[in-house]
């Protein structure tokens, strides 16, 4: 590891340092075959799939709204958001309710994922900076870093960015329609 460090440029080193500060506990989940993770502190709860009320004329990645004990919470379909094909819900499909502050607002949203895996502690040494995807379709800005545990590769998501982008695109879409 230390030889690696010496090879890096100072800019790259900054990225590695930033990635290292991510160390902590993560909630990991699956979308298709891929594994993602969110900082555990942003996760409020995990609920089974419940009836989702579709909201007309909002972006397609928003599945609709649910009643979370009297509070109306929007649900984002992360598969659609990441450009994967939508699949029918299975027994393991769940909604992870996340809470994060975006631009001073406290945002509570549900994200629909295929399967929740575990709570995974990641050491600084297990986290690498996000890879540069080149012309990848997925905006790499969503990814804080890449976690490595045993042989698994886990993408650590900046969920705030994912969700605010969901909103931004939706608003932009509405504007275009007008």
């Amino acid at each position: 590891m230390s030889t690696d460090v010496q090879k890096r440029s100072s800019a790259a080193q900054a990225l590695w340092d930033a990635a290292a500060t991510l160390a902590g506990k993560f909630m990991t989940f699956k979308l298709g075959d891929e594994e993602y993770a969110i900082e555990i502190l942003k996760v409020r709860e995990i609920i089974g799939l419940m009836e989702i009320t579709r909201v007309p004329r909002v972006s397609s990645c928003i599945r609709g709204v649910i009643n979370l004990r009297g509070k109306v919470v929007p649900v984002v379909d992360l598969r659609v958001k990441f450009g994967m094909s939508a699949i029918a819900a299975t027994e393991q499909t769940v909604i992870i309710v996340v809470q994060c502050a975006i631009g001073g607002r406290e945002l509570t949203m549900g994200i629909l994922v295929d399967q929740v895996l575990e709570v995974l502690p990641l050491q600084a040494s297990q986290i690498e900076p996000p890879p540069s995807f080149g012309t990848a379709e997925l905006d790499a800005g969503f990814i804080l870093g890449v976690g490595k545990a045993e042989k698994r590769v886990i993408f650590l998501l900046d969920i705030g960015k994912v969700l605010s982008a969901a909103e931004a695109r939706e608003v932009a879409g509405a504007g275009a329609a007008a």
Partner: peptide, 19 residues
């Protein structure tokens, strides 16, 4: 009447939600 939640942005033709 409840808000549909932050993060949904504008919802045309919908004033809000209700349980």
């Amino acid at each position: 009447i409840k808000t549909l939640g932050e993060g949904l942005g504008d919802t045309p033709y919908v004033a809000g939600g209700a349980i």
